[in-house]
Simulated scan of single mutants.
Amino acid sequence: MNFIILLITFILMEGATWLIHKYVMHGLLWGLHRDHHDHSTKGPFENNDFFFVIFALPAIALMYYGSINHYNYFFYVGLGITLYGMAYFLVHDIFIHQRIKWLDNTQNPYLLAIRRAHKQHHKHINKENGECFGFLYVPLKYFRMYYKKSK
């Protein structure tokens, strides 16, 4: 049952990410997210990187509370959020934005579609007229672009 809780949390995080990205990061907290779009911050870190801390705090709290209560479901919800965050970091920061060179020459249609959808998201420097706010879900039009080429 704990694995099911973890898996459902991981899957639900995609919807939460879409909502938070569109309405909070491109809304109320645009000031923190802006430098991710306009690349105005110099150096290896962006103000946008504070979102890792913001999202980690509830996950840590859930895991802590769940662990002192005999590893109840709160722990596994927090763990699911943490695993999603790790996947986000690997795919978004390392693969898509190449903060560390990794899989830069992939021909995998799904990975290419993720990268393309994210490029479409970054076409809009401002918070208006955005698209592709998700992370692991790729609109089919991008997936089809690369799936046809790989056959």
Rank of each mutant, 00 (worst) to 15 (best):
74 F>H: 14
7 L>K: 08
93 D>W: 00
12 L>H: 02
39 H>R: 14
61 A>D: 12
38 D>G: 01
80 G>Q: 14
46 E>D: 10
140 L>G: 02
41 T>G: 07
81 I>Y: 10
129 N>H: 14
130 G>Q: 14
56 A>D: 14
10 F>N: 07
75 F>Q: 08
115 R>A: 14
44 P>G: 04
86 M>I: 15
98 Q>A: 13
31 G>K: 13
121 H>Y: 01
115 R>M: 11
66 G>M: 02
72 N>K: 05
127 K>C: 11
53 V>C: 02
34 R>F: 09
136 L>E: 12
66 G>H: 06
77 V>W: 02
116 R>Y: 06
83 L>E: 09
45 F>Y: 14
99 R>I: 08
21 H>I: 11
66 G>I: 06
80 G>S: 10
75 F>L: 13
38 D>W: 03
137 Y>H: 09
125 I>T: 10
138 V>S: 02
79 L>W: 08
80 G>Y: 13
18 W>Q: 10
30 W>Y: 11
133 F>T: 07
28 L>D: 13
51 F>A: 06
40 S>I: 06
82 T>C: 09
39 H>M: 15
94 I>N: 05
2 N>S: 12
36 H>P: 00
129 N>W: 07
107 Q>K: 07
38 D>N: 12
109 P>I: 05
21 H>K: 03
62 L>H: 04
31 G>F: 15
98 Q>T: 09
139 P>W: 00
37 H>L: 05
86 M>R: 03
24 V>Q: 06
67 S>Y: 11
32 L>P: 03
135 F>R: 01
32 L>K: 02
127 K>G: 12
146 Y>S: 09
24 V>G: 00
36 H>F: 11
35 D>I: 00
147 Y>R: 12
149 K>M: 15
